[in-house]
Amino acid sequence: MFLGTHTPKLDEKGRIILPAKFRDELASGLVLARGQERCIYVFSATGFAEQVEKIRQAPLTSKLARDYVRIFLSGASDERPDKQHRVTIPPALRDYAGLDRDLTVIGAGDRAEIWSTEAWNAYYAEKEEAFSNTEEEVIPGLF
């Protein structure tokens, strides 16, 4: 499970050092994909296979489903960390998420997310108060 907030740097070759807490789960391979809110989703190889299986359940006759699958899978990239636990983020994904040197990596349960620190701070500032003031069931069965 991916938890916490981490602030690694992107090096000049477009690589990120994986947070230590995530290394075991991602050591055998990972998949980077376009995430919503212009971040990058990071799945373990197994976690990505589970997502693809869920996607396969979408009806081929649904235009929204076809559009989602095309955008999500066309940008996906399978990667393997090197011996220093670095992973290269492909240029297209770096551009998509607006990544520069300062990054924020968050754990989001079944995946990690890579954000530009500036984008994460803006998102967090906008959403934190709404989170604190949640009065109704947002996720069924949670409260």
Score class of each variant (00 low, 15 high):
52 V>Y: 07
47 G>S: 08
54 K>Y: 02
60 L>S: 04
11 D>E: 06
71 I>D: 12
90 P>S: 05
107 G>N: 04
12 E>V: 15
112 A>C: 10
85 H>M: 12
50 E>C: 08
31 V>F: 03
59 P>Y: 12
121 N>F: 02
24 D>R: 12
53 E>R: 13
119 A>N: 13
23 R>Y: 05
67 D>T: 11
108 A>I: 08
1 M>A: 09
69 V>T: 15
4 G>I: 14
113 E>A: 06
99 L>D: 07
72 F>L: 12
87 V>T: 03
58 A>G: 01
71 I>E: 13
44 S>W: 09
131 F>C: 01
32 L>F: 02
130 A>D: 13
121 N>S: 10
79 E>R: 06
129 E>G: 11
114 I>L: 07
52 V>K: 13
72 F>E: 04
73 L>F: 11
20 A>L: 11
74 S>H: 03
31 V>A: 06
62 S>G: 05
80 R>M: 13
126 E>G: 00
95 D>F: 00
4 G>S: 09
64 L>N: 15
143 F>V: 14
116 S>D: 09
48 F>W: 05
49 A>G: 14
40 I>Q: 08
83 K>R: 15
86 R>M: 12
88 T>P: 01
119 A>T: 12
140 P>S: 07
70 R>W: 05
131 F>D: 00
43 F>V: 09
109 G>C: 02
66 R>C: 01
88 T>D: 05
100 D>S: 13
9 K>Q: 14
52 V>F: 07
96 Y>E: 10
43 F>P: 11
111 R>G: 09
67 D>S: 11
94 R>P: 01
30 L>Q: 02
21 K>W: 03
102 D>E: 13
59 P>A: 15
135 E>A: 13
124 Y>C: 08
130 A>Y: 03
13 K>V: 15
78 D>T: 15
47 G>A: 09
45 A>I: 09
20 A>Q: 12
60 L>I: 05
37 E>R: 05
87 V>H: 01
84 Q>V: 08
6 H>K: 03
51 Q>K: 06
